[in-house]
Protein backbone atom coordinates (compact mmCIF):
# COMPACT_ATOMS: atom_id res chain seq x y z
CA UNK A 1 0.00 0.00 0.00
CA UNK A 2 2.73 2.39 1.00
CA UNK A 3 4.78 1.42 -1.98
CA UNK A 4 1.95 2.11 -4.34
CA UNK A 5 1.46 5.50 -2.82
CA UNK A 6 5.11 6.35 -3.16
CA UNK A 7 5.22 5.22 -6.73
CA UNK A 8 2.18 7.18 -7.61
CA UNK A 9 3.81 10.26 -6.19
CA UNK A 10 6.99 9.74 -8.17
CA UNK A 11 5.15 9.25 -11.40
CA UNK A 12 3.12 12.34 -10.76
CA UNK A 13 6.19 14.39 -10.04
CA UNK A 14 7.94 13.05 -13.10
CA UNK A 15 5.09 14.03 -15.34
CA UNK A 16 4.89 17.41 -13.68
CA UNK A 17 1.34 16.64 -12.91
CA UNK A 18 -0.03 18.19 -9.78
CA UNK A 19 -3.63 18.04 -8.80
CA UNK A 20 -5.39 21.26 -9.59
CA UNK A 21 -3.12 22.29 -12.37
CA UNK A 22 -5.36 20.68 -14.89
CA UNK A 23 -8.22 22.85 -13.71
CA UNK A 24 -6.48 26.17 -13.19
CA UNK A 25 -7.11 28.63 -15.96
CA UNK A 26 -4.30 31.04 -15.22
CA UNK A 27 -1.46 28.58 -15.34
CA UNK A 28 -2.60 26.78 -18.41
CA UNK A 29 -0.61 27.93 -21.41
CA UNK A 30 -1.06 28.80 -24.11
CA UNK A 31 -4.58 30.19 -23.96
CA UNK A 32 -6.85 29.13 -26.75
CA UNK A 33 -7.97 31.85 -29.13
CA UNK A 34 -11.44 31.70 -27.64
CA UNK A 35 -10.12 32.24 -24.11
CA UNK A 36 -7.88 35.02 -25.31
CA UNK A 37 -10.71 36.75 -27.16
CA UNK A 38 -12.80 36.74 -23.98
CA UNK A 39 -9.98 37.70 -21.59
CA UNK A 40 -8.74 40.53 -23.77
CA UNK A 41 -12.12 42.14 -24.14
CA UNK A 42 -13.84 41.60 -20.79
CA UNK A 43 -12.36 44.87 -19.50
CA UNK A 44 -13.96 46.85 -22.28
CA UNK A 45 -17.55 45.68 -21.87
CA UNK A 46 -19.48 47.40 -19.11
CA UNK A 47 -22.69 46.85 -17.17
CA UNK A 48 -25.35 49.49 -17.60
CA UNK A 49 -28.16 50.09 -15.12
CA UNK A 50 -31.03 52.37 -15.97
CA UNK A 51 -34.44 53.54 -14.96
CA UNK A 52 -36.71 50.89 -13.56
CA UNK A 53 -40.40 51.11 -13.01
CA UNK A 54 -42.23 49.10 -15.58
CA UNK A 55 -42.21 45.42 -14.78
CA UNK A 56 -41.86 44.46 -18.40
CA UNK A 57 -38.70 46.47 -18.92
CA UNK A 58 -35.45 45.10 -17.59
CA UNK A 59 -33.46 47.98 -16.12
CA UNK A 60 -30.10 46.57 -17.14
CA UNK A 61 -28.03 46.11 -20.27
CA UNK A 62 -24.45 46.02 -21.46
CA UNK A 63 -22.28 48.47 -23.34
CA UNK A 64 -18.88 48.72 -24.95
CA UNK A 65 -16.19 51.33 -24.20
CA UNK A 66 -15.32 52.99 -27.49
CA UNK A 67 -13.04 55.86 -26.49
CA UNK A 68 -10.55 56.75 -23.81
CA UNK A 69 -12.58 59.89 -23.13
CA UNK A 70 -15.39 57.75 -21.77
CA UNK A 71 -17.72 57.08 -24.68
CA UNK A 72 -19.77 53.93 -24.27
CA UNK A 73 -21.84 52.44 -27.05
CA UNK A 74 -25.07 50.66 -26.20
CA UNK A 75 -28.59 50.24 -27.54
CA UNK A 76 -31.14 53.02 -27.44
CA UNK A 77 -33.31 51.35 -24.83
CA UNK A 78 -36.26 52.80 -22.95
CA UNK A 79 -34.55 52.25 -19.64
CA UNK A 80 -31.72 54.60 -20.58
CA UNK A 81 -32.95 57.89 -19.11
CA UNK A 82 -31.30 61.15 -18.20
CA UNK A 83 -29.87 61.20 -14.64
CA UNK A 84 -30.80 57.59 -14.11
CA UNK A 85 -28.25 55.73 -16.17
CA UNK A 86 -25.28 54.30 -14.36
CA UNK A 87 -22.30 52.54 -15.87
CA UNK A 88 -20.42 49.90 -13.88
CA UNK A 89 -16.87 49.41 -15.13
CA UNK A 90 -14.97 46.16 -14.94
CA UNK A 91 -13.30 47.25 -11.64
CA UNK A 92 -16.72 47.71 -10.05
CA UNK A 93 -16.74 51.50 -9.98
CA UNK A 94 -20.07 53.20 -10.70
CA UNK A 95 -20.34 56.26 -12.92
CA UNK A 96 -23.31 58.38 -13.87
CA UNK A 97 -23.62 58.58 -17.63
CA UNK A 98 -24.48 61.54 -19.81
CA UNK A 99 -26.66 60.69 -22.79
CA UNK A 100 -25.63 61.63 -26.29
CA UNK A 101 -28.25 61.74 -29.06
CA UNK A 102 -29.14 58.29 -30.37
CA UNK A 103 -29.00 56.97 -33.90
CA UNK A 104 -32.65 56.31 -34.39
CA UNK A 105 -32.25 54.33 -37.57
CA UNK A 106 -30.01 51.74 -35.96
CA UNK A 107 -31.41 52.06 -32.47
CA UNK A 108 -28.05 52.64 -30.82
CA UNK A 109 -26.87 55.34 -28.44
CA UNK A 110 -23.61 56.66 -27.02
CA UNK A 111 -23.21 57.37 -23.33
CA UNK A 112 -20.38 59.38 -21.82
CA UNK A 113 -18.86 59.03 -18.41
CA UNK A 114 -16.46 61.35 -16.59
CA UNK A 115 -12.98 59.85 -16.81
CA UNK A 116 -11.06 62.45 -14.79
CA UNK A 117 -11.22 60.49 -11.54
CA UNK A 118 -10.49 57.07 -13.01
CA UNK A 119 -7.54 55.26 -11.46
CA UNK A 120 -6.89 53.07 -14.47
CA UNK A 121 -7.44 54.35 -18.00
CA UNK A 122 -10.26 52.86 -20.04
CA UNK A 123 -9.51 50.22 -22.60
CA UNK A 124 -11.56 51.17 -25.63
CA UNK A 125 -12.35 48.68 -28.39
CA UNK A 126 -11.76 49.56 -31.99
CA UNK A 127 -14.76 48.78 -34.15
CA UNK A 128 -14.09 46.47 -37.04
CA UNK A 129 -15.95 47.46 -40.17
CA UNK A 130 -15.87 43.97 -41.60
CA UNK A 131 -18.85 41.68 -41.35
CA UNK A 132 -17.68 38.09 -40.92
CA UNK A 133 -18.85 35.49 -43.39
CA UNK A 134 -21.43 32.86 -42.46
CA UNK A 135 -19.84 30.06 -40.49
CA UNK A 136 -17.33 32.27 -38.67
CA UNK A 137 -16.98 31.41 -35.01
CA UNK A 138 -17.91 34.24 -32.70
CA UNK A 139 -18.01 34.99 -29.01
CA UNK A 140 -20.53 37.32 -27.48
CA UNK A 141 -19.88 39.17 -24.20
CA UNK A 142 -22.58 40.76 -22.08
CA UNK A 143 -24.36 40.81 -18.75
CA UNK A 144 -27.13 38.33 -19.43
CA UNK A 145 -29.90 38.43 -16.82
CA UNK A 146 -27.73 40.75 -14.75
CA UNK A 147 -25.82 37.78 -13.47
CA UNK A 148 -22.67 39.80 -12.97
CA UNK A 149 -22.78 42.49 -10.31
CA UNK A 150 -20.15 44.96 -9.11
CA UNK A 151 -16.77 43.77 -10.42
CA UNK A 152 -17.88 40.28 -11.38
CA UNK A 153 -16.94 39.24 -14.86
CA UNK A 154 -19.50 39.29 -17.62
CA UNK A 155 -20.79 36.22 -19.42
CA UNK A 156 -19.43 34.97 -22.69
CA UNK A 157 -21.38 32.84 -25.14
CA UNK A 158 -20.07 31.03 -28.16
CA UNK A 159 -21.63 30.40 -31.52
CA UNK A 160 -21.31 30.79 -35.23
CA UNK A 161 -22.45 33.50 -37.63
CA UNK A 162 -25.65 32.08 -39.11
CA UNK A 163 -26.34 34.72 -41.71
CA UNK A 164 -26.16 38.42 -42.41
CA UNK A 165 -29.51 39.39 -43.77
CA UNK A 166 -32.44 41.73 -43.79
CA UNK A 167 -35.36 40.00 -42.21
CA UNK A 168 -38.62 41.39 -40.97
CA UNK A 169 -38.70 41.46 -37.20
CA UNK A 170 -41.12 41.47 -34.37
CA UNK A 171 -40.51 42.55 -30.80
CA UNK A 172 -43.12 41.79 -28.17
CA UNK A 173 -45.69 41.06 -30.89
CA UNK A 174 -45.07 44.38 -32.61
CA UNK A 175 -43.33 44.75 -35.94
CA UNK A 176 -39.94 46.40 -35.73
CA UNK A 177 -39.16 49.03 -38.30
CA UNK A 178 -35.55 48.19 -39.05
CA UNK A 179 -34.32 48.24 -42.59
CA UNK A 180 -30.62 47.47 -42.18
CA UNK A 181 -28.66 44.26 -42.23
CA UNK A 182 -28.53 42.18 -39.10
CA UNK A 183 -25.89 39.64 -38.19
CA UNK A 184 -27.67 36.53 -36.98
CA UNK A 185 -25.71 34.13 -34.80
CA UNK A 186 -26.42 31.07 -32.75
CA UNK A 187 -24.52 32.43 -29.76
CA UNK A 188 -27.23 32.76 -27.11
CA UNK A 189 -28.46 36.31 -26.59
CA UNK A 190 -30.60 37.03 -23.55
CA UNK A 191 -32.03 40.04 -21.74
CA UNK A 192 -29.12 42.05 -20.36
CA UNK A 193 -26.77 40.76 -23.02
CA UNK A 194 -28.10 43.61 -25.20
CA UNK A 195 -25.53 46.16 -26.11
CA UNK A 196 -22.74 43.69 -25.45
CA UNK A 197 -19.90 43.00 -27.83
CA UNK A 198 -19.81 40.41 -30.58
CA UNK A 199 -16.26 39.39 -31.47
CA UNK A 200 -14.49 37.02 -33.80
CA UNK A 201 -12.01 34.60 -32.28
CA UNK A 202 -9.11 36.76 -33.45
CA UNK A 203 -10.55 39.58 -31.41
CA UNK A 204 -12.28 41.76 -33.99
CA UNK A 205 -15.27 43.60 -32.53
CA UNK A 206 -17.83 43.80 -35.29
CA UNK A 207 -21.30 43.93 -33.78
CA UNK A 208 -23.51 44.98 -30.88
CA UNK A 209 -26.10 42.54 -29.61
CA UNK A 210 -29.69 43.65 -30.14
CA UNK A 211 -32.73 42.92 -28.06
CA UNK A 212 -34.28 39.49 -28.40
CA UNK A 213 -36.27 39.84 -31.57
CA UNK A 214 -38.44 37.39 -33.39
CA UNK A 215 -38.09 36.88 -37.11
CA UNK A 216 -41.47 37.00 -38.81
CA UNK A 217 -39.94 34.83 -41.49
CA UNK A 218 -39.46 31.92 -39.11
CA UNK A 219 -41.59 32.83 -36.06
CA UNK A 220 -38.68 32.02 -33.80
CA UNK A 221 -36.54 34.21 -31.62
CA UNK A 222 -33.17 34.98 -33.09
CA UNK A 223 -29.88 36.21 -31.69
CA UNK A 224 -29.09 39.25 -33.75
CA UNK A 225 -26.46 41.96 -33.75
CA UNK A 226 -26.15 45.32 -35.46
CA UNK A 227 -23.02 45.49 -37.66
CA UNK A 228 -20.63 48.25 -36.64
CA UNK A 229 -20.01 48.85 -40.31
CA UNK A 230 -23.36 50.61 -40.36
CA UNK A 231 -22.61 52.58 -37.18
CA UNK A 232 -19.37 54.10 -38.47
CA UNK A 233 -20.81 57.51 -39.35
CA UNK A 234 -22.64 57.79 -36.03
CA UNK A 235 -19.54 56.92 -34.01
CA UNK A 236 -17.38 59.38 -35.95
CA UNK A 237 -19.98 62.11 -35.55
CA UNK A 238 -20.18 61.90 -31.77
CA UNK A 239 -16.72 60.72 -30.78
CA UNK A 240 -14.49 62.57 -33.17
CA UNK A 241 -16.93 65.38 -33.85
CA UNK A 242 -16.79 64.75 -37.56
CA UNK A 243 -19.71 66.42 -39.27
CA UNK A 244 -21.72 63.92 -41.26
CA UNK A 245 -22.13 64.37 -44.96
CA UNK A 246 -25.51 66.02 -45.16
CA UNK A 247 -27.94 63.68 -46.81
CA UNK A 248 -30.20 65.38 -49.26
CA UNK A 249 -33.71 65.02 -48.08
CA UNK A 250 -35.36 63.56 -51.13
CA UNK A 251 -39.06 63.22 -51.10
CA UNK A 252 -39.93 59.74 -52.27
CA UNK A 253 -42.25 59.82 -55.22
CA UNK A 254 -44.71 57.02 -55.84
CA UNK A 255 -43.90 54.74 -58.77
CA UNK A 256 -46.04 53.70 -61.73
CA UNK A 257 -45.75 50.17 -63.10
CA UNK A 258 -49.11 49.63 -64.72
CA UNK A 259 -49.95 46.44 -62.83
CA UNK A 260 -53.28 45.99 -61.14
CA UNK A 261 -53.36 43.02 -58.82
CA UNK A 262 -56.20 40.69 -58.10
CA UNK A 263 -56.43 41.71 -54.49
CA UNK A 264 -59.49 40.33 -52.80
CA UNK A 265 -58.54 41.93 -49.51
CA UNK A 266 -59.45 40.09 -46.36
CA UNK A 267 -57.43 39.27 -43.30
CA UNK A 268 -54.84 37.30 -45.16
CA UNK A 269 -53.44 39.03 -48.21
CA UNK A 270 -53.67 36.77 -51.30
CA UNK A 271 -50.75 35.94 -53.62
CA UNK A 272 -49.91 38.69 -56.11
CA UNK A 273 -51.83 37.59 -59.21
CA UNK A 274 -52.08 40.17 -61.96
CA UNK A 275 -55.59 41.22 -62.81
CA UNK A 276 -54.85 43.83 -65.47
CA UNK A 277 -51.84 45.43 -67.14
CA UNK A 278 -52.27 48.95 -68.52
CA UNK A 279 -51.47 49.30 -72.18
CA UNK A 280 -48.20 51.13 -72.82
CA UNK A 281 -47.12 50.83 -69.19
CA UNK A 282 -43.68 49.58 -68.00
CA UNK A 283 -45.14 46.17 -67.19
CA UNK A 284 -46.70 45.88 -70.65
CA UNK A 285 -43.26 46.42 -72.18
CA UNK A 286 -42.14 43.00 -70.90
CA UNK A 287 -45.41 41.46 -72.02
CA UNK A 288 -46.92 40.80 -68.61
CA UNK A 289 -50.46 39.51 -68.74
CA UNK A 290 -53.43 38.91 -66.49
CA UNK A 291 -53.12 35.76 -64.34
CA UNK A 292 -49.34 36.04 -64.07
CA UNK A 293 -48.19 35.44 -60.51
CA UNK A 294 -45.57 37.92 -59.35
CA UNK A 295 -43.11 36.15 -57.05
CA UNK A 296 -40.19 38.51 -56.78
CA UNK A 297 -39.21 42.13 -57.33
CA UNK A 298 -35.45 42.50 -57.63
CA UNK A 299 -34.18 40.45 -54.70
CA UNK A 300 -37.27 40.85 -52.55
CA UNK A 301 -39.68 37.96 -52.28
CA UNK A 302 -43.28 38.90 -52.91
CA UNK A 303 -45.63 36.40 -51.37
CA UNK A 304 -48.76 38.50 -51.22
CA UNK A 305 -50.40 41.61 -52.64
CA UNK A 306 -49.49 43.38 -49.42
CA UNK A 307 -45.82 42.52 -49.85
CA UNK A 308 -46.01 43.70 -53.47
CA UNK A 309 -47.22 47.13 -52.38
CA UNK A 310 -44.65 47.34 -49.58
CA UNK A 311 -41.81 46.32 -51.87
CA UNK A 312 -42.83 48.71 -54.65
CA UNK A 313 -42.72 51.52 -52.11
CA UNK A 314 -38.98 50.89 -51.74
CA UNK A 315 -38.31 51.81 -55.36
CA UNK A 316 -38.09 55.17 -57.02
CA UNK A 317 -39.25 56.41 -60.41
CA UNK A 318 -36.61 55.84 -63.07
CA UNK A 319 -35.25 52.77 -61.31
CA UNK A 320 -34.94 49.57 -63.32
CA UNK A 321 -36.05 46.49 -61.43
CA UNK A 322 -36.28 42.85 -62.29
CA UNK A 323 -39.71 41.27 -62.05
CA UNK A 324 -39.91 37.50 -61.64
CA UNK A 325 -43.31 36.06 -62.41
CA UNK A 326 -44.89 32.71 -63.05
CA UNK A 327 -47.08 32.03 -66.04
CA UNK A 328 -48.52 28.53 -66.26
CA UNK A 329 -45.67 26.31 -65.19
CA UNK A 330 -42.90 28.58 -66.46
CA UNK A 331 -41.09 31.16 -64.42
CA UNK A 332 -40.15 34.25 -66.39
CA UNK A 333 -38.04 37.26 -65.66
CA UNK A 334 -38.03 40.72 -67.15
CA UNK A 335 -36.64 44.17 -66.41
CA UNK A 336 -38.95 47.13 -66.17
CA UNK A 337 -38.12 50.78 -65.70
CA UNK A 338 -40.49 52.35 -63.24
CA UNK A 339 -42.13 55.66 -64.08
CA UNK A 340 -43.40 58.40 -61.87
CA UNK A 341 -47.00 58.08 -60.87
CA UNK A 342 -49.12 60.79 -62.45
CA UNK A 343 -51.79 62.37 -60.38
Amino acid sequence: MIRRFALALTVSAASAFAQGEAYSFEERKPKTMLEKAVDDHLQSVVKIHGASGLATIDPYASGVVVSEEGHILTLDLIMIQRDKTRVVLADGSIHMAKLLPPDQKLGIRLLKIDTTKLKTPLKPLKPSLEVPKNGTFVVSIGNCFRLAEYSEKLSATFGVVTATARTSLRYFLRDVDYDGDLILTDAPNNPGHFGGALLTLDGKWFGINTRMVESTETNTQISAAIPLRDAKAYLERWIEGKQPVAEEAVEKKPVYHGIKLFDTGGRRSPPAYVERVKRGSPAAAINMRPDDLIVRLDRYSVRSCKEFRETMARFEPGQTIEVTFKRGTKVRRGKITLEEKKK
Binding site: A8, V11, S12, S15, F17, E21, A22, R28, K29, P30, K31, T32, M33, L34, K36, G135, T136, F137, L201, D202
Partner: peptide
Protein backbone atom coordinates in the same frame (compact mmCIF):
# COMPACT_ATOMS: atom_id res chain seq x y z
CA UNK B 1 -1.03 8.50 -13.83
CA UNK B 2 -0.23 8.27 -17.52
CA UNK B 3 -3.82 8.63 -18.50
CA UNK B 4 -4.15 11.73 -16.37
CA UNK B 5 -1.00 12.95 -18.10
CA UNK B 6 -2.63 12.57 -21.44
CA UNK B 7 -5.63 14.47 -20.14
CA UNK B 8 -3.32 17.33 -19.20
CA UNK B 9 -1.85 17.22 -22.68
CA UNK B 10 -5.26 17.28 -24.24
CA UNK B 11 -6.23 20.23 -22.11
CA UNK B 12 -3.18 22.35 -22.76
CA UNK B 13 -4.80 22.58 -26.10
CA UNK B 14 -3.76 23.84 -29.40
CA UNK B 15 -4.63 27.55 -29.27
CA UNK B 16 -5.64 27.53 -32.90
CA UNK B 17 -7.81 24.44 -32.78
CA UNK B 18 -11.08 26.34 -33.15
CA UNK B 19 -9.70 28.41 -35.99
CA UNK B 20 -8.97 25.21 -37.82
CA UNK B 21 -12.50 23.95 -37.24
CA UNK B 22 -13.74 27.29 -38.51
Amino acid sequence: ALSSLSIVNAQSDDPHELMRVQ
